[in-house]
Design a binder for these strands. Structure first.
Length: 883
RNA sequence: GCCGGGGUGGUGAAAUCGGUAUACACAGCGGACUUAAAAUCCGCCGCCUUCGGGCUUACGGGUUCAAGUCCCGUCCCCGGCACCA
């Protein structure tokens, strides 16, 4: 109160992020800096971050995603590219319906309000976005083209209808998403979920399975891990389809049970077959067997998620039916097993307990025979087969297989397939794990499927002139049933073919459909006459796509499929939508909680907690600031509402500004790793920007006036101390450019910090030369920081008197003159251990270095008089003397 | 269960083609400035040590003159599994 601030700097020396950022953003806004059009004179760079679901407000994961994208966009602009960075909203989806149920607000209204707010947040963060291309998938001018394409693909046969299995909540009489099924029960009703078969539309993604697989090899810009996951997901496997003829005496009719196997070599080891609970043979057997019927009923309980099916207890029951082994003629029992699924392959598998772990466990449990037919190279089998060993599943030479004995895997498969084909009981076949994409959803807040069901004409696509089928927006959502199915004014219509009264489809599409083509729509977002136009072939493909690793399979695979489907419709030239892919890691933070009633945990926000540290700085305890009583440290978790460990980006921006938020996010971890939140790390980022700011203004007031007229630094002979500072700056720049190339932005920030450290420590007494080095260093520093902290860089660029708009400045390159060194230090090792350093001339020969090393004091000492056995010289790095 | 990824100081992390492990920060400790505090600046900071040095990249082996990096095995953590987006 009474104090003055005698050393308080002049006004412009104080870093005030809010003022700096508003000014920079106004400048970009008034110059329309980020609005782009096609330009044949420049290479184009289409930089795209995955568009957000408008959930309410931005979370830290969004800020990270869009900061990474913005860094790349601004960097490429300075590299001379014509950069497009658009933004939009993935606006259909379940959360809007849940909010509608909870707060009694229509999904459309809720969604639009969220979009408005989140857009202001994105603008405040200073992203270089071309907002003129903004789109929202819930708007008819977007989804009408999705409906239009649907009718095209339907007429082409690429979309078809069949039964699919869903989670049915018998109490709420509604279909649930997998995440709404918890331990086999509905999340709201608590009712036991049943599997139910309903008619659904499917996109024939399997028609592109081979192309989607093969083309992965031509995507060098994608992370190997993502390509591998997609490859495994598509799951191409070469195998044999085997037909087991029905035993007529038990089944009562002739026919064959089809199974697919990749291990046809083990066919002679098959001791039973298993079918899904919904399989026709299962239903037939259950018809007059109440016990079997009860078991099938039990199999219907629980959800459809694969992770649940794979981890549940394997159960089965014999049907009393038999099939005939196609090669031996042996009669094998047919079992119903809960782990066999009707939707996968043929809904039936052959079981070889001796060589398949799951079959082994099943056979052991139900005392079914186990017959060894493969002797692996490790000769793992003894006379007793239990317990299971992984080696049992290995390929090897056949035994106990009659004429196939001693054949190895591939020869055995070939011979068996040939014999099966001769008998008409099987053949080689390629199978995919990938299944067709079921896109029907029994939900309200989605894109209506443009189909009309007519009693006479069947399923009829909505004609072009009747599109879009507009989703009514003034709707009450209750969570019971589907609102559209209860809305005659929506579903009552006339058949487009015969004109009779018909019924409109009331299912909507999977929201993955909207996100499978939005990146193409951005190129021609203003076109009201067509889905895309010729501009798409200027911008597509996306040069750099950035988003969470959690989308590695579904979203990215659907987008690759959709791009091809649109290509084959003549809408776009390219096949691959995303040339380069950067998968960003999660944002995580510490959690704290207290035990509450009923074994529940009461999660406490980290902002309300104080931590205690020991003398090493380790956190040893934590307490709630409000009451001073201890809380439990819950470990590091993904930022989430449920764990109350989220940090609100808005509060961060309000307190420190957008540049500090961006700098911390970029510096704390490389983009593809998880990012651990740290309030003190944010402080550190802010401190750095303040130092940059004050150095800039020291330059303006003290150094710039000393600059000589001739500014050719490369021609100047600098004092050694200053030459070292300049070399350090250029070494850091070289490092930063290398790191930018591999998207390791955290070390670009390190390099910027090192440059500032070097500038601050530069010897001041050398006057004009110092001012010159400082000017060059500051020039480099501001351009390096321009993509990361664009506002502060923009302001300092102006204040320090550098020419032009920093947005259009060129990217800096290190000077060879500045990097030149006459002598270098090598590491001296004896027997691989560090024993000293060796100063040598930069161009010294290996033999000269070797001689110098052997003669050195350190080498003499640690060689202990023994003769060198070998001397390894790594030029520019080290010398290793082996004795 | 299946597929993919990760594990380096007290903490976030760095180490480019197998070549000085711990750059750059954060936290902590000590000092300067201040009536005091904040801010700022300077210094120290992997572990052990008989002060010669020895040890250290989740754990156990292996290859190599040399391994955080390559190979084999184990443990733990995370992402995805088709209706969350």
């Amino acid at each position: 109160m009474f104090s003055t601030h005698p050393r308080q700097p002049p006004m412009q020396d104080k870093y005030t992020p809010a003022a700096v950022e508003v000014a920079a953003q106004q400048h970009w806004e008034s110059t329309q800096a980020f609005k782009v059009a096609e330009d044949a004179g420049k290479p184009k760079y289409y930089c795209l971050s995955m568009f957000p679901y408008p959930s309410g407000k931005l979370h830290m994961g969004h800020v990270r995603n869009y900061t990474i994208g913005d860094v790349l966009a601004r960097y490429h602009r300075m590299r001379g590219f014509n950069v497009l960075q658009p933004m939009g909203w993935d606006a259909f989806g379940m959360p809007a319906e849940n909010a509608a149920i909870q707060n009694n607000v229509p999904p459309a209204k809720w969604t639009c309000a969220n979009i408005d707010y989140m857009k202001t947040q994105l603008k405040r963060l200073g992203f270089a976005i071309d907002w003129s291309r903004e789109l929202a998938t819930c708007k008819p001018d977007y989804y009408r083209w999705e409906q239009w394409l649907f009718t095209r693909l339907y007429q082409k046969g690429l979309i078809y209808k069949k039964l699919g299995t869903v989670n049915w909540d018998p109490v709420d009489e509604t279909v649930l998403a997998n995440e709404q099924v918890i331990d086999g029960r509905g999340w709201r009703s608590g009712a036991v979920i049943e599997k139910r078969e309903i008619p659904m539309y499917y996109m024939k993604i399997t028609a592109y399975a081979d192309e989607l697989l093969e083309a992965l090899d031509a995507l060098p810009g994608w992370p190997e891990q993502v390509k591998l996951m997609q490859k495994n997901w598509i799951g191409r496997s070469e195998g044999v389809e085997v037909h087991f003829p029905y035993e007529v005496s038990t089944i009562g009719s002739s026919g064959v049970l089809k199974v697919f196997t990749t291990r046809a070599d083990t066919l002679l080891g098959a001791t039973y077959v298993a079918v899904a609970a919904e399989h026709p043979l299962a239903l037939q057997a259950a018809a007059n067997d109440p016990e079997l019927a009860a078991f099938i009923d039990e199999c219907r309980h629980g959800g459809v998620a694969e992770a649940d099916l794979a981890t549940m207890e394997k159960k089965g029951m014999a049907t009393g039916l038999r099939v005939v082994h196609p090669l031996t003629g042996e009669h094998l029992p047919v079992w119903i097993a809960n782990y066999v699924l009707m939707g996968y392959g043929e809904g039936a598998v052959m079981a070889v307990p001796a060589h398949d772990e799951r079959d082994f466990a099943f056979a052991t449990k139900y005392r079914l025979p186990i017959r060894m037919v493969v002797r692996s190279t490790r000769d793992a089998y003894t006379d007793t087969v239990a317990p299971w060993q992984d080696a049992y599943a290995e390929q090897g030479r056949l035994v106990n297989s009659g004429k196939y004995d001693s054949l190895h895997f591939q020869d055995a498969v070939d011979a068996i397939a040939t014999d099966l084909a001769a008998k008409g009981l099987g053949a080689k076949r390629t199978q995919y794990r990938l299944r067709d994409w079921g896109i029907s959803r029994q939900r309200y807040w989605g894109c209506p499927i443009p189909m009309i069901h007519c009693a006479d004409c069947g399923d009829v696509p909505v004609p072009d002139e009747q599109l879009p089928v507009v989703l009514p927006e003034d709707v009450a959502v209750t969570g019971r049933g589907s609102p559209l199915a209860k809305m005659p004014r929506f579903y009552e219509c006339d058949c487009p073919k015969c004109g009779k009264q018909a019924k409109r489809e009331t299912d909507t599409m999977d929201t993955f459909v909207e996100s499978s083509w939005y990146f193409l729509r951005y190129a021609s977002a203003d076109n009201g006459q067509a889905m895309v136009d010729e501009r798409v072939n200027y911008w597509a493909p996306v040069d750099q796509y950035i988003g969470g690793i959690e989308h590695a399979i579904l979203h990215l695979l659907y987008s690759r499929f959709f791009t091809r489907a649109m290509r084959d419709e003549g809408l776009v030239d390219v096949s691959e939508p995303f040339t380069n892919l950067l998968t960003q890691g999660m944002v995580v933070a510490e959690t704290y909680y207290r035990d509450a009633d009923g074994g529940k945990k009461q999660w406490i926000n980290p902002a309300d907690v104080e931590v205690e540290r020991d003398e090493k700085g380790r956190i040893v305890a934590a307490k709630l600031t409000a009451d001073g009583a201890p809380v439990v440290i819950g470990g590091i978790e993904k930022m989430a509402k449920s764990k109350n460990n989220g940090v609100d980006p808005q509060a961060l921006v309000d307190q420190y500004g957008a540049d500090t938020a961006r700098l911390f996010i970029i510096f704390a971890a490389p983009p593809d790793q998880q990012l651990e939140w740290s309030d003190s790390g944010v402080e550190g980022a802010y401190r750095f920007l303040r130092r940059v700011w004050s150095f800039g203004h020291v330059f303006v007031s003290e150094l710039r006036p000393q600059l000589p007229a001739d500014r050719q630094l490369d021609a100047v002979r600098l004092p050694e101390a200053l030459a070292a500072v300049r070399r350090e700056i250029h070494v850091c720049l070289r490092q930063a450019n290398y790191d930018f190339g591999k998207h390791q932005f955290n070390t670009v920030v390190s390099a910027a910090m090192k440059i500032l450290n070097a500038l601050e420590k530069a010897p001041r007494e050398v006057g004009a030369a110092h001012a010159q080095v400082a000017e060059e260093g500051l020039d480099i520093l501001l351009r390096l920081l321009a993509p990361i902290t664009p506002h502060v860089a923009h302001a300092l660029w102006q204040d320090c008197g550098f020419a032009g708009d920093l947005l259009h400045a060129s990217w800096p390159e290190p000077s060879e003159t500045a990097l030149r060194q006459d002598e270098i230090d090598l590491v001296l090792q004896v027997n691989g251990k560090l024993r000293g350093t060796l100063r040598v001339a930069a161009g010294a020969s290996n033999s000269a270095i070797e001689a110098l090393a052997l003669g050195s004091e350190a080498a003499q000492k640690f060689m202990e008089g023994k003769p060198p056995r070998k001397v390894v010289v790594v030029p520019g790095r080290l010398v290793n003397i082996v004795v």
